[in-house]
Lab assay of single mutants.
Amino acid sequence: KKKYVIKVYFEDTGKEVEIEAESKEEALEAAKRLAEELGLKIKKVEIYP
């Protein structure tokens, strides 16, 4: 089964997080949740198959 690796870059902090997920949708949801939890804004998202 294919996994996606999503790199999320946050504004202000210069922080980046990698998330593995089964689908792009799932990964983007996780990225949004994470940003909310951390109180950060997402600057850029890169998706690698």
Rank of each mutant, 00 (worst) to 15 (best):
I19Y: 10
K43I: 14
K15E: 10
E22I: 05
K44W: 13
T13W: 05
V5H: 08
E29W: 12
V17I: 12
T13K: 09
E37I: 11
I19A: 04
V5M: 06
A31C: 03
K3H: 13
A21V: 10
V45L: 06
Y4C: 06
E16W: 13
A30T: 12
G14N: 14
E36G: 10
E29Q: 08
E26I: 07
A27Q: 00
K3V: 04
E46W: 05
I42Y: 02
G39D: 08
E20N: 11
K2Q: 15
K43L: 10
E16R: 06
F10Q: 00
V8L: 10
Y4L: 08
E37D: 10
K44G: 06
D12G: 14
L40F: 05
Y9L: 06
K3Y: 06
E22G: 07
L38H: 03
V8M: 04
A21W: 02
Y4M: 05
G14D: 09
K44L: 06
E22H: 12
L34N: 02
E29T: 14
V45M: 08
K3N: 09
E18C: 15
G39S: 04
L38R: 03
K15M: 09
E20F: 07
L40Q: 07
L38T: 03
E46H: 13
K32D: 12
I42V: 05
Y48I: 07
E22T: 08
A30V: 15
S23C: 08
E11K: 05
K24A: 14
Y4W: 05
I42L: 05
T13I: 09
E26S: 15
K15H: 09
A31T: 03
I19C: 04
K1I: 14
E22P: 13
D12F: 10
K24Q: 08
L28V: 12
L34T: 12
A21M: 08
K7V: 10
Y4S: 02
V8S: 00
V45D: 01
E16K: 11
A35G: 06
F10C: 01
Y4E: 01
E36D: 14
E36Y: 15
P49K: 05
R33T: 11
K1T: 15
K43M: 12
V45E: 01
L34W: 06
A31H: 00
G39N: 10
Y9E: 07
K1P: 15
K24G: 13
K1C: 15
S23E: 06
Y9T: 10
G14M: 07
E20W: 05
K44R: 15
K1G: 15
E29N: 15
E25D: 14
D12Q: 05
L28F: 11
K15P: 13
E22R: 05
L28S: 06
G39F: 02
K32G: 07
V17P: 02
V8F: 10
E25Q: 05
L28N: 09
E36S: 14
K44S: 12
L34R: 09
G39T: 02
E16F: 08
E46F: 07
G14E: 09
T13M: 15
A30R: 11
K41H: 09
V45T: 06
E26F: 13
A21G: 13
I42D: 01
A31D: 00
L40C: 03
F10N: 00
V5W: 12
G39K: 09
E46C: 04
K43R: 07
V45Y: 10
K44P: 01
P49H: 09
V17S: 05
I19M: 12
L28K: 06
I19G: 02
D12H: 08
V5Q: 08
Y9S: 09
L28A: 06
V5N: 13
F10K: 00
F10W: 15
G14I: 15
G14K: 15
Y9I: 09
I6T: 03
G39H: 08
E26R: 06
L38N: 06
K41Q: 07
V8T: 01
E36K: 12
I19L: 13
E11C: 12
E20C: 05
I47T: 05
A27F: 02
K43S: 07
E37S: 12
E11F: 13
E16C: 03
E29D: 10
L40I: 03
E11R: 04
K2R: 11
S23N: 10
E46Q: 04
A21F: 04
G14A: 09
V5D: 01
K41M: 08
D12L: 13
E25R: 05
E18L: 14
A30L: 11
G39R: 03
E16H: 06
Y9Q: 09
K2I: 12
V5P: 01
Y9N: 03
E26C: 09
L28Y: 14
E16A: 12
E11W: 12
Y48G: 04
K2A: 11
K24C: 09
I47F: 08
I42F: 02
E25V: 10
E16N: 12
L34M: 15
E22F: 05
A31W: 02
E22K: 04
E37P: 01
F10A: 01
E20L: 12
A27C: 13
K15R: 08
E20D: 06
V8Q: 00
K24S: 11
K44N: 13
E20I: 07
A21P: 00
F10E: 01
K2V: 09
L40N: 02
R33K: 13
E16M: 13
K3R: 05
